[in-house]
Amino acid sequence: MKDYNKKKIPRATAKRLPLYLRNLTILDTKGVARIKSKELSDITQVPSATIRRDFSYLGELGRSGYGYDVAFLIEVFSHILDSNEESRIAIVGFGNLGKALANNNFRRNENLIISCVFDTNPEIIGKTIAGFYVYSMADFKQIAQEKNIRIAISTVPSEHAQEAIDIVVNSGITAILNFAPDRVEVPDNISMRYIDLTTELLTLLFFDHNYKKTPLAVTS
């Protein structure tokens, strides 16, 4: 596999690569061997010109008139996204959302593994719930290092998110997914992504109202 210079891939393009990979994987399971940018555009809701530009940063991935080989694209994007490498995940906040994420446990990618969960509620700390032992946030750094955690997912409400994220950052973890929409302060070396369910729902309604003729792919 070609050694791609990941730092030269624009951020906007990098954000779309998981979307491409997810939909291409679905197509592969359905027996689709090749696809053109227009067809992929219909599925992902990303303009075909943008898809071709994104792919151009990675070299010659397809051929004019033929399109793209689905299996080859999956191999390329999996390599770039390191999706074939095991990544251990910690969930911070084991309420309803935390439990839902833990129960899903990223079945679409067996290399994304939820290894431990944390909370501050004394009523559940030290108990095994939904198959997960609930650790105290006071022990986050020790447990995260013992279990080689690479990613933290925070489901802590906005009013307590900064305190929780500070603990995660102090443990040495630099990749954080935050389900609280309000921004928190983190050092420049931290890769932070936010998921705002309200924004996602409003976006979904917009597409549902205005793009009825085009099939939508699930993107998050």
Rank of each mutant, 00 (worst) to 15 (best):
F118D: 00
I125L: 06
I129Q: 03
A175I: 12
I113L: 04
F132S: 03
Q145N: 14
E159W: 12
G131A: 09
A130Y: 14
I124T: 08
Y135T: 07
P157M: 03
A138G: 14
N121L: 09
H160E: 11
A144F: 01
S158P: 06
I129H: 04
T128G: 01
R150T: 08
M137L: 11
I129L: 02
Q162C: 03
P157T: 04
I114F: 09
V117L: 11
I113T: 02
A152W: 05
G131M: 09
E163S: 13
E163K: 15
I173Y: 13
Y133F: 13
S115N: 10
F140M: 01
G126K: 01
M137Q: 04
R150F: 07
E123N: 15
S136D: 07
A175N: 15
N148L: 12
I125N: 01
Y133Q: 05
E123W: 11
I165W: 02
I167S: 13
K147G: 10
V156W: 04
D119I: 07
S158F: 10
S115Q: 12
S136L: 01
T128H: 03
F132Y: 15
I113P: 05
A130I: 09
I167C: 12
T128C: 04
A152L: 04
I113G: 04
C116V: 03
Q162I: 00
H160Y: 14
Q142A: 14
E163V: 11
V117S: 10
K141L: 08
S158L: 09
A152M: 00
V134F: 14
F118A: 04
T155M: 06
T120W: 14
E163L: 11
V169P: 10
K147F: 12
K127N: 08
N148S: 14
K127E: 05
I143N: 13
Q142N: 14
C116T: 00
A164C: 06
D139A: 12
A175W: 13
F118K: 07
G131R: 08
C116G: 06
G126E: 06
A144L: 01
N121M: 07
I167R: 14
M137V: 05
E146C: 08
D139I: 08
F132E: 01
A138R: 15
V168G: 04
T120D: 15
A161I: 10
T155E: 02
E146S: 13
E123H: 15
F140Q: 02
D119V: 05
P122S: 08
G126L: 09
Q145M: 05
V156K: 05
K141P: 01
V134G: 12
E159A: 14
V134Q: 13
R150W: 05
I151R: 02
S136I: 06
T128S: 07
S115V: 10
A138F: 10
I113E: 07
V156I: 09
N121H: 11
Q142M: 13
K147T: 09
N170R: 13
V169K: 13
Y135G: 04
H160R: 12
F132D: 06
T128P: 01
Q162A: 05
F132G: 03
Y133L: 05
A144Q: 05
I143H: 13
I149Q: 04
S136G: 06
L112D: 10
G172C: 07
Q142Y: 12
I153E: 06
D119H: 02
